[in-house]
């Protein structure tokens, strides 16, 4: 039985595919996007959320910790030392205020499906399971198992992916996936490498593979002012759309800084960049170029 670290299972999601969906967020991502809005899903290993403002100074964490990861200053202020932390999560189980929380839980396909199935009465004909992350395709075995089970139970399936995964993984999941929500973060290879740490060639190749296997795709394009909010990028996106047989269109995702509070709880600082937030004019430009080029904007 496959298992993976799951950061969240979001029920009644209406944004990640058709109908009512349950979205399973799997931890770990090979990309390192500067604008990541799910920073807690980046690292492959588990982490601890720490929210200082919730601490009531009771000292339960220090007593439970075997690693000296928690300390209290003379004035009562709590210090968390991530470098000392062995992630045993003992503090999480004793902290009354939930100032510490485990970012993820190891879950088996069985355990995940138990939760996904609970909302079956709400899925109707269109709803079902969406796998997201992180990058779900790095957990190919688990993905295949979950998708197979969901299909057998009559749900529709979707995967939200960066496309940065092995070709093998894409080939395995494509026949089990009703819709890929495929991120196109940038079409300029140099900028892509600079901002995500990886080349975009594999992503585009995988997209072609999925398409050649008959998989429906929706291109999800983050819009970042000063990065990719420019005509050349959206013309290139149009080109990608037209090169695919089963692509339903493009969804524009304006950059937001909501990931900031999560980053703060993980690393102690919020490095969100407000300058990237696109203006309505940037979005209108993107929509216009795509529409002019015959691309459905979803």
């Amino acid at each position: 039985m496959s298992a993976a670290l799951v950061t969240k299972i979001q029920r009644f999601s209406t944004h990640d595919g058709d109908g009512v969906r349950t979205v399973v967020f799997l931890k770990g991502c090979p990309l390192d996007c500067k604008w990541c809005h799910n920073p807690e899903t980046k690292k492959a290993e588990n982490q601890l959320y720490y929210v200082n403002r919730l601490c009531i100074g009771c000292g339960a964490c220090r007593a439970a910790c075997g690693q000296d990861a928690h300390a209290f200053l003379p004035d009562g202020r709590h210090i968390y030392r991530p470098e000392q932390c062995a992630l045993c999560m003992k503090c999480v189980s004793v902290c009354p205020a939930k100032a510490m929380e485990s970012v993820a839980q190891v879950m088996t396909a069985e355990q995940i499906m138990e939760i996904v199935l609970r909302d079956k009465p709400f899925y109707g004909e269109n709803g079902g399971l969406t796998l997201s992350g992180g990058e779900p395709l790095i957990h190919a075995d688990l993905c295949v198992e979950l998708l197979e089970r969901a299909k057998k139970l009559g749900m529709t399936t979707a995967i939200e992916t960066s496309g940065y995964a092995s070709r093998e993984a894409v080939r395995r999941v494509a026949p089990l996936t009703d819709c890929f929500l495929w991120d196109i973060k940038d079409t300029d290879p140099v900028r892509h490498k600079e901002n995500t740490g990886a080349d975009n060639r594999l992503i585009l190749e995988n997209l072609k593979i999925a398409d050649s296997l008959g998989a429906k795709t929706v291109l999800r394009c983050i819009v970042l002012k000063g990065v990719n909010a420019e005509p050349a990028h959206f013309r290139a996106v149009s080109g990608i759309y037209h090169s695919l047989q089963y692509c339903a269109g493009v969804e524009l995702l304006p950059y937001h800084t909501y990931g900031g509070s999560k980053r703060e709880q993980l690393d102690g600082f919020d490095d969100g960049n407000k300058a990237w937030i696109p203006a309505e004019a940037d979005l209108a430009l993107a929509r216009d170029i795509l529409t002019e080029n015959g691309v459905p904007v979803l």
């Binding site: 009644f12 209406t14 944004h15 058709d18 009512v20 009465p121 709400f122 109707g124 269109n126």
Partner: peptide, 21 residues
């Protein structure tokens, strides 16, 4: 949570699930 056509579909699904249960 209820934007677009999918928002209507989601609300309908919520009501139908409520009845089914």
């Amino acid at each position: 949570t209820l934007k677009g056509e999918n928002g209507v579909a989601a609300l309908v699904a919520l009501i139908e699930g409520f009845c089914r249960l």
